[in-house]
């Protein structure tokens, strides 16, 4: 009897890591910015208004739950399983949407404020070029996912799909073209 192709504990581990990264850390930062006394600081940085930054962290906190679900599936499917590539691609798309969402699709009005004498300055940020650069950087994750799949495919089949592994090794080791075709057909 073959072992399970999926791992719920790993899924939970991935989800917990995503929850920490996308929700809990931003939430903690937001609490500290709103009330620095929680970490022993005496008062807020004088003259600086963090309302916009807190809004960003709050959006990250909420979207973190979506990322948590996506990451669960990325961990749930084992390395070498083709479905893991789809799950990781969903995570990649999710992380880009998360980025767009926390920066309010590039429009960060009232991002931060400063006091200047008796007056108050508010700072708006409009992010333009970074949106395109982030797409390119994210797309570079696809070769990583596929590379991971290729590197672990044989071990995955040997451990979790012995029947397919027998078929995989039926040809001579030099018959790489047919081997690759079979691997793809799986």
């Amino acid at each position: 009897m073959s072992k399970s192709k999926h791992s719920i504990p790993k899924g939970i581990l991935f989800a917990a890591a995503a929850l920490t990264l996308y929700s809990l850390i931003p939430y903690a930062l937001e609490i500290i910015l709103k009330d620095p006394s929680v970490i022993g600081a005496e008062s807020q940085l004088s003259g600086i208004d963090f309302t916009g930054i807190c809004g960003m962290l709050e959006r990250s906190f909420y979207f973190g739950f979506v990322m948590c679900v996506l990451y669960f599936f990325a961990g749930f499917y084992r390395k070498g399983d083709k479905t893991r590539i789809y799950a990781q691609t969903a995570v990649m798309i999710g992380s880009y949407v998360w980025f767009l969402y926390i920066i309010n699709f590039g429009n960060l009005e009232n991002f931060a404020g400063f006091d200047i004498g008796d007056a108050h300055v508010t700072m708006d940020i409009f992010i333009t070029g970074l949106l395109g650069i982030m797409i390119l950087v994210n797309l570079l994750k696809i070769p990583v996912y596929y590379g991971q799949y290729v590197d672990n495919r044989e071990e995955f089949m040997e451990t979790y799909d012995p029947d397919a592994y027998v078929l995989y090794n039926a040809d001579s080791p030099d018959d790489s073209v047919r081997k690759t075709r079979r691997r793809r057909n799986r």
Partner: peptide, 11 residues
Amino acid sequence: SSFKMNFNNVL
């Protein structure tokens, strides 16, 4: 080159 920032100061 990738950010545009606006500052509003009430005078």
